[in-house]
């Protein structure tokens, strides 16, 4: 390796470090400042906290029902992710391996409404939900989140399943497997990485969304994490450490999911699963 190219690689490494710090430092900022007092934050928000205190966390739990909001998010997100992933993968399986006449109509409908602004859909649904006395009820929120995530999931899984050779399906059929069995025992295992990636993306989409949860679940006993955090930021502009504690805990579930699944998720995303 020439001196010049070694220098170039050192330069690349340096720039990567700068970008890396920009993505990690905000997490460190949240963590350190959640352990400082307000006074200490105002003096120096950078660096290690000199006096570690958990006061912000106690203040957080006493002002907003934080753990309840995590629970509400889980109640909505988990069933919606399972339902959306199942419905999308079933549809993608039919589109690629067992096509029927009306299938194309459905697929094109999904493509067309994939990037529909959420508010176009949500406006009449909100009115209908409120009129049916189902406001602040988890069931409509679960179903609406499921529906909204089906088109993109189907689209991604369709390109994923298309790369599975038809001969695999045919072989299983010759062996006498039912279509349902082919889907569950053949296609789902082969397309596992893609299915998991779509599942994670759906989880992130719903967990991180503010708009739908804000509109449909606004009562204290149903409020999800994101509206709770948004509300917290309105209350605590003067007490940043409490706000940082809330943000850090609110970020934890998706961060942990990412850390736990990074290998499969990154591979799935890189294999062109995202478009």
């Amino acid at each position: 390796m020439s001196a010049r190219s070694r220098l170039a690689r050192a330069g690349v490494f340096l720039v990567l470090c700068v970008i890396g710090v920009s993505t990690v430092y905000p997490l460190i900022f949240m963590a350190f400042n959640s352990m400082r007092t307000t006074q200490a934050f105002e003096v120096n928000p950078f660096g290690l906290p000199t006096h570690v205190t958990t006061a912000s966390y106690s203040a957080l739990f006493s002002t907003v029902p934080f753990f309840a909001s995590i629970l509400h998010s889980l109640i909505v997100v988990v069933p919606a992710v399972v339902l959306a992933t199942l419905a999308s993968s079933l549809a993608a399986f039919v589109f690629t391996k067992v096509p029927v006449k009306l299938g194309n109509v459905l697929f094109w409908t999904m493509l067309m409404i994939m990037f529909m602004p959420g508010i176009v859909v949500l406006l009449p649904l909100y009115v209908e939900v409120a009129r049916s006395g189902l406001a602040n009820n988890f069931a409509p929120a679960i179903l609406i989140y499921t529906a909204i995530n089906i088109p993109y999931g189907t689209y991604l899984l369709r390109s994923n399943f298309r790369s599975i050779p038809d001969s695999v399906v045919e072989a299983a059929r010759v062996d006498g497997a039912s279509w349902l069995k082919v889907y569950w025992r053949v296609i789902m295992p082969i397309g596992k990485a893609g299915v998991i990636t779509v599942g994670i993306l759906t989880f992130l989409n719903i967990w991180n969304d503010l708009f739908i949860s804000l509109v449909l679940l606004h009562a204290p006993n149903t409020e999800m994490v994101t509206p709770t955090l948004a509300e917290l930021s309105g209350k605590y502009t003067s007490n940043i450490p409490v706000l940082m504690a809330g943000l850090l805990l609110g970020a934890m579930p998706t961060l942990l999911l990412y850390f736990a699944t990074a290998r499969v998720f990154i591979r799935g995303m890189l294999s062109g699963a995202v478009r």
Binding site: L83, L86, A87, S88, L90, A91, F93, V94, V98, P99, V100, L102, G103, L106, T109, M110, I113, M116, V120, V121, L122, L123, P124, L125, L143, I144, T146, A147, I148, I150, P151, T154, W179, Y183
Partner: peptide
């Protein structure tokens, strides 16, 4: 095929196309 498309179709039609 129609059975497998039904969940996606019902949800997408009922909760997206109709709205």
């Amino acid at each position: 095929s129609y059975g497998a498309l039904a969940p996606a179709a019902i949800l997408v039609l009922g909760l997206m196309v109709v709205p």
